[in-house]
Each structure stands twice: as structure tokens, then as C-alpha cells.
Computed example of a mutant assay.
Amino acid sequence: MQNWTPRDLAQQLNTAAHAVQLLDVREPWEYQIVHLENSQLVPLSQLTNYGLHELSKDLPIVVICHHGIRSAHACYLLERLGFQAINLTGGIDRWAREIDPSIPIY
């Protein structure tokens, strides 16, 4: 599993946002509080039952959660299914602290 820091992801989004998919595996109530633009919500508990058909194996998937634990689990699952998955270390919480302090921290 590959890991990216929020700075790595910010650089990717600034230079070639179209070259990655953003998958948020938090719960809907968390996603409503804050999420990255153009991210797709598929809670970890529903990942194998929903949403896999909407993901492309042609582009890497950056997986996002609150602190990086659920996203790491999702990355392992996605890799076993043939996807290229990248874990956002520190999750949306670290993103808020390092990249965009205007977004809510919960």
C-alpha cells in the first residue's frame, strides 16, 4: 500500500487532479461535516457491496477517512481486488491541519 501525506495529495490535485480518484470511506454524517471536493463517499462497511463498479482500475484511488485507519483497511481490500490504492495518512483531520485550516475539525 502506498501512503501519501496531505501535501502529496494537494500537489497532485494542483497539477493533475484528473489523474486520481478520491474515495472517502467515512460515514455519511462525517462526510456532511467536511469532505474534499470531487470525492466519492462509500462507507467502509459498504465498500464491497456498493461502489466498486463506479471505481476505475485505470486510475489510482486516494482513500480518505478521518485519521487514516479506515482508509488503510480500504486500501488493503482494494489492492486485493486489483485497484491501485493510496492511503491519505492522517486523513481529513491532517488535511485540515496542514492544508486547509478553514475546514471543520471534528
Rank of each mutant, 00 (worst) to 15 (best):
A72W: 01
Y50V: 10
L59I: 04
W29D: 12
I86R: 02
V62L: 10
E37A: 09
R70L: 11
L88T: 05
S71Q: 06
L44C: 01
L81W: 13
A96Y: 06
S39R: 03
R80C: 05
L55A: 00
Q32V: 09
R97T: 07
P28R: 07
C75A: 11
D93C: 10
Y50G: 09
I64K: 00
R97L: 12
S45G: 15
K57G: 04
S56V: 06
L78G: 00
D58K: 15
L23G: 02
L36H: 02
D93S: 14
L44A: 05
I33M: 15
C65R: 02
A85C: 07
D58F: 10
G90F: 07
E27I: 06
P43T: 02
S102D: 13
V62W: 01
R26Y: 03
T89V: 13
Y31A: 05
P43Q: 10
A19W: 02
V63H: 01
T89M: 14
P101M: 05
L52K: 00
I64Q: 00
G68H: 07
P101K: 05
K57D: 07
E37I: 09
S56C: 06
E27N: 14
P28S: 14
V62D: 02
G68E: 10
E27L: 13
E98D: 15
P28D: 11
A72Q: 14
E37V: 06
S56L: 11
V62I: 10
G91K: 00
L78V: 09
C65P: 04
T48S: 08
K57Y: 02
Y76G: 15
H73V: 08
E98R: 13
I99G: 08
H66V: 04
E98G: 09
H66I: 06
R80H: 11
N49L: 13
I33T: 12
L81N: 06
P60M: 11
G68P: 01
L47C: 05
P28N: 13
I86Q: 00
I92K: 03
P60V: 06
S56R: 08
P43R: 03
E27Q: 15
I69F: 15
D58P: 04
Q84W: 03
E79T: 15
C75N: 04
G68M: 10
L41T: 03
